[in-house]
């Protein structure tokens, strides 16, 4: 922030960096080094996408949500129900999942922009739980607690069937996640994105300088919901099953944990959080099925103790210390 021409600073920040390209190349190469874990890799990408959608709202916009699974689940049920009723083409199904979730997000945004702090947290939680109960009550449509079965997805582009090893699913999830990250990257570096961060830092100030924040917050909630729906739709299509847990409180809470763990307000916070949390859980529950919660909890506590800004924040601070250049403090943003 100490840059003399702030515009130059923003531009520098928005430039594509080598590290990012390498990261996405490394993920793309997953079939080479973890050929047996492509389903896990896809689920990590989906969770990262879900966390990214929350990041836009919470990390950049400063609006907490404890009911984000409402949009995830809406996307999942949209994609799942379409496929169950014979619309098995994946890409259009995914677009529909995103649009329906975005529409729900738009509707909810009129309630949400009026609230902040704990009330916002609890109202989003409440709306999420109401939707969960609704899905349970509409068991004839959703399958209730048994889950939605008979979800059959046609081959991608009519060519690549969803195989058991999960190759198609991985490539599909990868491409969608890459596109979503590119989109969010543009958004957060745009004037719109900057005004969101301004709102996060000082809502009163933004109102004073005349920014139409209510409309912008509605927009960001809509986009965030759409991305969450995209993630949910992806999960439904790659798993070919939708359970009530897609809408559950646990999923909402977990994505908040994942985002804070990785580092909110940073483009890759959700991705890093999803990587650490999900690989950690997989490895720990494999090694110690009854007590893995202990070790996962310990990791969270240690991260808080030693990296209060999340893993990416901690990494950035470490870089600053190593290179001794304060300007890099913003590097990871």
């Amino acid at each position: 922030m100490e840059s003399i021409a702030p515009g130059a600073g923003f531009e520098r920040r928005s430039r594509l960096r080598a590290g990012e390209v390498l990261l996405w190349l490394a993920i793309a190469a997953a079939p080479l080094y973890v050929p047996g874990h492509l389903v896990l890799a896809s689920q990590i990408l989906i969770t990262a996408l879900f966390a990214l959608s929350l990041d836009l709202l919470l990390g950049y916009g400063g609006m907490i949500s404890l009911g984000h699974a409402a949009y995830f689940g809406t996307g999942a049920y949209t994609a799942g129900l379409l496929a169950q009723h014979g619309w098995s083409e994946p890409i259009s199904g995914l677009v529909a999942a995103m649009l329906v979730a975005a529409a729900l997000g738009f509707a909810a945004s009129f309630v949400i922009v009026r609230l902040s702090g704990v009330a916002l947290l609890m109202v989003t939680l409440g709306l999420g739980l109401l939707l969960f109960e609704l899905a349970n009550a509409l068991a004839d449509i959703t399958g209730g607690s048994d889950g939605l079965q008979g979800v059959e997805i046609a081959p991608l582009l009519g060519l690549f069937g969803f195989d058991m090893v999960g190759r198609t699913g991985f490539v599909y999830a990868y491409l969608v996640a890459l596109g979503a990250f590119a989109l969010v990257r543009r958004i957060v570096h745009s004037p719109f994105g900057l005004s969101l961060q301004g709102y996060r830092e000082n809502p009163a100030r933004m109102a004073q300088i005349g920014a139409p924040m209510a409309a912008r917050l509605r927009l960001v909630n809509t986009i965030s919901a759409g991305l969450a729906g995209l993630a949910g739709g992806l999960l439904a299509q790659t798993t070919q099953f939708v359970g009530l847990d897609a809408l559950g409180f646990e999923r909402s809470a977990e994505v908040v944990i994942i985002l804070i763990l990785g580092g909110g307000g940073r483009l890759y916070g959700g991705l890093v959080g999803a990587l650490v949390f999900m690989i950690g859980r997989d490895v720990l529950s494999e090694a110690n099925p009854e007590y893995w919660y202990f070790w996962l909890g310990l990791i969270l506590v240690l991260v808080v103790l030693f990296m209060p800004q999340g893993i990416l924040g901690g990494g950035a601070a470490l870089l600053v210390r190593l290179r001794g250049r304060a300007a890099l403090g913003e590097a990871a943003r």
Binding site: G36, H37, V39, S145, F241, P289, E290, W292
Partner: peptide, 23 residues
């Protein structure tokens, strides 16, 4: 070879089944 779903968690169950079968 026992795997924990920590559920109800259908997507984890399906992934674990896939890994058990393939790997």
């Amino acid at each position: 070879d026992a795997k924990d779903t920590g559920g109800p968690n259908p997507e984890v169950a399906k992934r674990l089944a896939q890994e058990l079968i393939v790997n």
